[in-house]
């Protein structure tokens, strides 16, 4: 049998806020090909079976971070996950766990975006330099201290992996804290004291219980669990050092 004749079943979470009290699942049978991604499967459904299916996607190459969904209960980028990994079994696609569902597979990212904004996700120069003074130099070690954390593509798979975020949505969460660490760990940055106020809070790193699943599902090997938990050490030092040092710790 050639790939053309093979089919695979995809069970998709549907939620229409004007009609459904809660999400329901609908099963679709689509043509199978070994080189097809789950995203292409969803696109097939939308193009040929049911045009009302809603989902986000853009780049199709695991860099835009918009196509995250739950695939067989695991947070994944649908463009980076292939039908062949499940064939001949059934595939079950749901909206990202722990996030409010807007419609079908589309989640409401407002909370994530607000939190992302709150941590100043940009370099606040430690010292102002004029153009004539040239660029900010870094050693390879200074680069290595933050580089992996700068790979984050804001796909929110780690939020779908984090039960603590599901249990208490006020928790800043793995991805945003990893980005916070990315800037705090950068030798050029000077806004560490501001960001430590977020780190030190209950809603900051202390909302984490090191489940560790966030780092497991990250499609960019960012390791948010490491970023969050190393900042528990930073926060602890900050907590006790303020008693020892006149003028307090980094954030008073």
């Amino acid at each position: 049998m050639t790939d053309i004749e093979k089919t695979i079943e995809i069970e998709v979470m549907r939620y229409h806020p004007e009609q459904d009290a809660s999400p329901v699942f609908k099963t679709y049978r689509i043509p199978y090909a070994s080189d097809q991604s789950v995203l292409q499967g969803l696109q097939y459904i939308k193009d040929y079976i049911d045009g009302t299916l809603s989902f986000r996607w853009s780049c199709r190459m695991a860099i835009c971070g918009s196509c995250g969904v739950m695939i067989n209960n695991q947070p994944k980028l649908s463009c980076k996950t292939f039908l062949r990994d499940y064939y001949p079994g059934k595939i079950r696609v749901e909206a990202l766990q722990h996030l409010p569902i807007e419609r079908d597979l589309v989640i409401d990212a407002t909370d994530f975006i607000n939190k992302l904004e709150s941590i100043k996700p940009y370099i606040v120069p430690r010292e102002a330099r004029s153009l004539e003074q040239g660029e900010y130099l870094q050693t390879p070690e200074q680069l290595a201290r933050y580089e992996q954390f700068s790979s984050c593509i804001n796909c929110m798979l780690c939020y779908a992996a984090c039960p603590q975020y599901g249990l208490k949505p006020e928790f800043t969460g793995p991805g945003v804290l990893a980005l916070l660490h990315r800037y705090n760990a950068d030798s050029r940055d000077g806004a560490r004291a501001d960001r430590m106020q977020i780190v030190n809070a209950e809603e900051g790193v202390w909302g984490c219980t090191l489940v560790g699943y966030c780092s497991e599902v990250c499609p960019k090997q960012v390791d948010p669990a490491a970023a969050v938990n190393r900042n528990k050490v930073n926060s602890t030092l900050d907590y006790f050092l303020r008693f020892l040092m006149p003028g307090g710790g980094e954030s008073g």
């Binding site: 939620y15 806020p17 004007e18 809660s22 766990q97 409010p100 569902i101 807007e102």
Partner: peptide, 12 residues
């Protein structure tokens, strides 16, 4: 017409 649906966490 928005009505974002939040899934329960029971037995997570």
């Amino acid at each position: 017409k928005r009505r974002p649906y939040v899934r329960p966490m029971d037995g997570w």
